[in-house]
């Protein structure tokens, strides 16, 4: 008899490796990002995304083909491309009469859209227009959020989280002091304008251990205007922000040290299931056929008496 329907497994070793690498992990690496073009993006919108791509570079891909879709109406293409490219951040550029120079920034969770925020580009000065030395690619920038609006406006609050997600790169334990050379500053006003500025840090002598900071603008310099938003529900957010059990710090319970420095611990034992305990098997303890019969009879009798007792009561 042959096997009818096998559940498909990867046929090659490499395919298996790829599938394994795509499985969810407790500790995730830096989020990958894709940049794509929607319907007829303007040059300005395209260049904005290109500059953001340059800032994000080792963890990003710029897809140069135009796609006929509107992110806020149908985001399936984004989800599909994110799945294909293993990305969870995306940027889309588009342009229309109603929404000129449109840039949509967003992120996905489990290949489904989590947040999507639409920004209009009011003015833009590209990185290449600043003629000076740029920072190294792949460097972790310092992020500055200026203005009370970042705290008061709910949309801006989420946008702050999205921007942090975009630019913070990766969680690091140590950082080289000389490697702190990039500052991204986001200034939000009450009317929903966001000024993005990017600076290189110059560390000057201050006569003390801590240096004096001077900044030099390296671009890009973008003035965004907040437009539509599509934010995740609170439930989904909580689900997405879950911390795996193995990463949570373990609380040390029932441990103490006495005056002499001896470690003391209190142990709680679970209840042992005695019924299933296997004791030593011995021939002498085995029940003979007659004994078994008698036990059965006894059981029957007990049942009968119980029945009678209930009937009489």
């Amino acid at each position: 008899m042959g096997v009818i329907q096998r559940i498909k497994k990867p046929t090659t070793r490499k395919g298996k490796k790829v599938l394994l690498s795509r499985e969810p992990k407790a500790i995730e690496g830096p989020k990958q990002c894709i940049f794509l073009q929607a319907r007829n993006p303007s040059e300005r919108a395209r260049n904005v995304l290109k500059d953001i791509y340059n800032l994000k570079k080792p963890d990003a891909a710029y897809l140069s083909r135009k796609n006929d879709f509107v992110p806020f109406e149908d985001a399936t293409l984004i989800e599909k491309l994110c799945y294909k490219k293993e990305a969870s951040l995306f940027g889309v550029s588009s342009h229309s009469k109603k929404r000129p120079h449109n840039v949509v920034l967003g992120r996905t969770f489990d290949y489904n859209i989590l947040d999507m925020i639409e920004l209009g580009v009011d003015s833009f000065k590209a990185m290449s227009e600043f003629h000076n030395i740029k920072v190294l690619t792949g460097i972790k920038p310092c992020l500055l959020f200026n203005g009370p609006a970042w705290l008061l406006n709910q949309d801006l609050k989420r946008l702050k989280n999205v921007l942090t997600d975009f630019f913070h790169r990766d969680k690091v334990e140590t950082i080289r002091l000389q490697g702190l050379e990039h500052v991204l500053s986001f200034t939000a006003t009450d009317d929903g304008t966001i000024y993005l500025r990017s600076y290189r840090i110059l560390l000057k002598k201050s006569g003390q251990r801590t240096p004096r900071v001077e900044l030099e603008e390296i671009g890009p310099s973008i003035d965004f205007k907040l437009r539509r938003t599509m934010l995740a529900s609170d439930d989904l957010c909580i689900e997405a922000c879950k911390v795996p059990k193995e990463l949570k710090p373990i609380a040390k319970k029932n441990r103490s040290t006495d005056a002499f420095g001896t470690k003391l611990g209190r142990i709680h034992m679970g209840k042992q299931d005695i019924n299933r305990l296997q004791t030593r098997k011995m021939k002498g303890l085995r029940k003979s056929a007659e004994e078994k019969k008698q036990m059965l009879l006894k059981k029957k009798l007990a049942k009968k008496t119980a029945k009678q007792a209930t009937a009489s009561a």
Binding site: E23, P24, K25, E28, R107, F109, D110, D165, I175
Partner: peptide, 18 residues
Amino acid sequence: VVRLPAPKTVLPRSKPVP
């Protein structure tokens, strides 16, 4: 180098917890 403390900002994961 400087040893940084654990980040305070909570960012969403890209995939659910395994």
